[in-house]
Design a protein around this nucleic acid. Structure first.
Lengths: 336, 336
DNA sequence: GAGAATGTGTAGAACGTTCTACGGCAAGAT
DNA sequence: ATCTTGCCGTAGAACGTTCTACACATTCTC
């Protein structure tokens, strides 16, 4: 009455039973008669009782899963969230997102905060931290990592198959008749391993080798400007490439601008492909050929793995989601 | 020792004081000697103690603020988040985001979940719910609403000044010499009031009237396709407009495509302006004139108001953030 | 030097759950 | 009749905090 909140005791009083009985009904625990069920459920409905998650936290579960986001601007992050919430929609679990920022320090602060709030499990999206820090978190709470290649024994991992994605692009371009295909990647300052852009570049190299072609990787940055600068350099060469595969769509947009400025028409003079299939790639005015990661599947998989782990699985799982190539207007046969 | 978690009792034992004393130090409460301070702080550091938020929740604050997101795809939502977290960065508050979805039902479920987790306050971004539902939430917890015009006594509100934004666009176009300026707005199915697109349309009408010009509003939808269709209809008229102001950038992109297809060059034959200043508007290849809302300021303001309200302010505040016009390449003088 | 005022620390009762341990009862086994 | 065996329900101790009430020193005031 004080705080206006309906507690388990209010329900118990109304139904004329003990709080323990109400708790059992709420949790669906063993040892409740049908009659008791009905009585308690009715009282719950009449009073509009909802369990107080914070109080639950002190004893058992909170039914709260945390998702640590390293970068809220990540273009497919909404898809991942949708995948997670979609998967969890009909369970009792609630999802809360934690903006961790790009700094290792702020990310650590966020994961700590999530642990302090007794979340039942954590999904970390592209976390920037050492393996030791990751292990410390995984020791405290079930963890699934998304977007970081190379798993570990103490947590599950879900990644896009970036090697396959790069191969899809190369195969497509080679199939169109291209032989001089350049790749623009992101220049890494950090010493981290297994970041998606590195794996994409590796995948590109492997695929080119498989076709008996020479690879040509230029590292700038995954920004519109980075793509522009990279393309300008590539297009100024004597034997300029007939196709440019940018490791990220945002860079591919810069490549398109460079082509415009160089007076090259796309795709006749230059084919361009990106990665991530961000929203604007599908706009008719852009129509960018790109690799789609299906964030929904990634998110749904991560959610499934996390719940499994919370419910007892200890063997660790690494799941790789296959990307698909979305062919649009920026790729075509080279002009001979 | 059981759960591995360091509790306030562990700290108390280590420092040789009572748990109440440790609690005082942690909370910075009154009645602690310097000596006690030092002893306790040292013990805290040695043991790596962090207060258990869920346990705190049962008595006092959780130092957790919830942000209910109605649409994770909202283009300036990352800016708002940054504004919020930036403002709160040096406080003890932690921010958690709740993906509420676009359905009233799922949004209600999320706000309930946040209340159940004893969050200290809630920021609701463009919530879709009745005033009564909103009032019920505001009765349970301090609330700040973002992006919904027309506040109420029980919560604070932060909105973009959409009337001003629309006026900025009209003034700019009129200043360039345009007189036939059309506006594309979003067709509303819901009976909700004060939604941004309605206010923008009103602002457009007011500004046109102020210049003695006839208004011309077409309602399609805020999608690329909606902008395209709307523009096609407008451009097919006998006396076609020389400028189109779309109520959202995404629709403006559709307008640009329609202009392309109609063989009209922008801005010579047609000026185009949008609203929201989404990321791609600044890409050189698009270079869309748009109204910028400064999500950071909006977010920071919301965070400030929420903390004030949590700390005791009861009088309700409605804050209006002034937008700015970003003039780029899609607007220019009309061809005579 | 008595009483008041101030400053510092502690005991212990909440907060709303979960869950172990146990009591009572009815039905079946002996 | 007595003993098991299940089943159903309850009492009550946690969980880790906060915070009121109070005890005890010390210092101030007259």
């Amino acid at each position: 009455m004080t705080s206006g909140r309906v507690t388990i005791a209010d329900v118990a009083r109304r139904a004329g039973v003990s709080t323990a009985a109400v708790s059992k009904v709420v949790r669906g625990a063993y040892g409740v008669s049908a009659e008791m069920q009905a009585k308690v459920r009715q009282a719950i409905d009449e009073l509009g009782y909802r369990p107080h998650a914070a109080a639950r936290a002190l004893r058992g579960r909170t039914y709260t899963l945390g998702v640590m986001l390293s970068d809220t601007r990540n273009p497919f992050f909404p898809d991942i969230i949708e995948g997670i919430t979609g998967r969890l929609g009909d369970t009792e679990y609630q999802v809360l997102l934690g903006p961790g920022g790009i700094e290792p320090k702020t990310q650590a602060r966020m994961t700590d905060a999530m642990i302090d709030r007794s979340m039942d499990g954590l999904i970390l999206i592209s976390p920037v931290m050492t393996d030791a820090e990751l292990a410390a978190i995984a020791a405290a709470v079930p963890v699934v990592v998304v977007g970081r290649h190379g798993g570990a024994a103490d947590h599950d991992a879900v990644v896009d198959d970036d090697v396959m994605g790069a191969r899809l692009v190369v195969d497509h371009l080679v199939g169109l008749g291209h032989t001089r295909i350049a790749h623009i990647t992101h220049l890494e300052r950090a010493r981290a391993q297994g970041l998606p852009h590195m794996v994409r570049a590796d995948g590109y190299r492997q695929a080119m080798r498989a076709h008996g072609l020479a690879d040509d990787v230029l590292a700038t940055s995954f920004t519109e400007e980075g793509g522009f600068e990279g393309a300008r350099e590539l297009l100024a060469r004597d034997h300029r490439p007939t196709a440019i595969f940018a490791g990220a769509d945002i860079a591919a947009l810069g490549v398109l601008r460079a082509a415009d400025e160089a007076g090259l028409s796309v795709p006749e003079d230059l084919s361009v492909a990106g990665y991530d299939n961000i929203g604007i790639a599908s706009l008719k005015r852009i129509s960018l050929t790109s690799v789609d990661q299906d964030g929904r599947v990634i998110g749904a998989t991560a959610a499934r793995l996390l719940v499994e782990r919370i419910e007892g699985r200890t063997r660790s799982v690494a799941s790789s989601v296959s990307p698909t190539l979305i062919v649009r207007g920026t790729t075509g046969p080279p002009r001979l």
